[in-house]
Computed example of a mutant assay.
Amino acid sequence: MSSRPRVLVIAEPDPELPAPPLSLIPPDVDVVEVRGTPTGDQLAGAEVLYVWDHRFTDLAPVLRSADRLRWVHAASVGVNRLICPELVSRQVTLTNSRGVFDVPIAEWVLAAVLSFVKGFPHTLALQREHTWLYRTTGRLAGKRAAVIGTGSIGRAIADRMSRLDVEVTLVGRQESNAMTAVAAEVDILIAAAPLTAATTGLIDADVLAALGPGGFVVNVGRGPTVVEADLVEALRTGTIAGAALDVFEVEPLPADSPLWSMPGVLVSPHMSGDYVGFEVDMIGVFVDNLGRWLRGEQLHNIVDPECGYVRS
């Protein structure tokens, strides 16, 4: 039997996503690829668990069955599905892939906001009809935006928005209790926060009403941060002007959701951070941390299970 550390990789095939490039993991460890929940034999002797499958949610029973498991790494930024009491009780470290998606998601947000301000959906609709209709559009410069979430993604969004002369406010954990007041002072409300008890249902009817009829909502964090029924009603009644949504309460978004066909709404299938080659960069974060773990060094991107994210 090999004396090298054993790394389990949960990588259930997903036709929509690239497979993990496991060949990039150095040969210092034994890599065991797992489909679904690991068996007892697979867990025997395993010290590291790499959760590539974003649909995997059964971490608690795995931790209870794996005596030697001390580190779990998520191939994602959001880890709410993996948070469980066993992480603390069994002294297992959880890390995530923070940093991989910062710039791509910020670019997506900029594209969505600029498309809305410059009226691109209307322009494309007129183009399809071969209709020449002169009109004026808005300006992004001088707009005010609030970014909910002060992690690396939220900071990347705020940085790039500010470079286009947008007045940006970063909203952290403490300020989230005053979301109505925050929304009343901005034109664009961007959710880029992890899903926690504090952020669930954070953007509701009162917040949307405060944002006002010219307001635009962007959600690239987690679907339940926005009360979807309240958002649909706000869009239907003109309480706000539009929304760009990459995440939803239920995914895939049901075919009968009114969001699919509402004017001023962009529906994106949870892909704002994914770019050609992201799987290589993603596994690079794990490989870097694996080297640290083998050398007995401090890991990067350690998640605090009490709050559900990496404390900056």
Rank of each mutant, 00 (worst) to 15 (best):
A184L: 02
D206G: 07
Y309D: 04
L133Y: 03
V285H: 08
S115L: 00
I25M: 09
A44V: 14
A229K: 15
G291V: 10
S272M: 00
L211H: 02
P18Y: 00
A193N: 13
Q42S: 13
Q91I: 00
L195E: 05
L49H: 12
P194K: 05
L202S: 02
E249H: 15
R139W: 08
V226C: 03
I188V: 11
P254A: 13
G36Q: 11
R295G: 08
V48Q: 06
Y134N: 10
E47N: 10
P5W: 10
W293N: 03
V72I: 00
V29K: 04
V109E: 01
E251Q: 12
T196E: 08
A198S: 11
P15Y: 11
W52V: 01
E47V: 11
E306K: 12
W260G: 14
V220Q: 01
A111V: 00
M271Q: 08
W293S: 03
S176W: 07
S76R: 06
Q42W: 05
V51I: 13
H300L: 15
R90D: 04
A46C: 11
G119C: 00
A46H: 11
I240C: 06
A141D: 15
T199M: 07
G264M: 07
H300Q: 15
D246G: 09
T225E: 03
P5V: 05
G273N: 02
L266M: 06
G215V: 01
L43F: 05
P224G: 05
A243T: 11
V92T: 05
G149C: 10
F101Y: 06
G36R: 01
V48M: 15
H300R: 15
S312V: 05
T169Y: 06
V232S: 14
N289F: 03
R163L: 13
N289A: 08
G201V: 05
E233I: 01
A229C: 08
A198Q: 14
T239A: 04
R222D: 08
S97K: 01
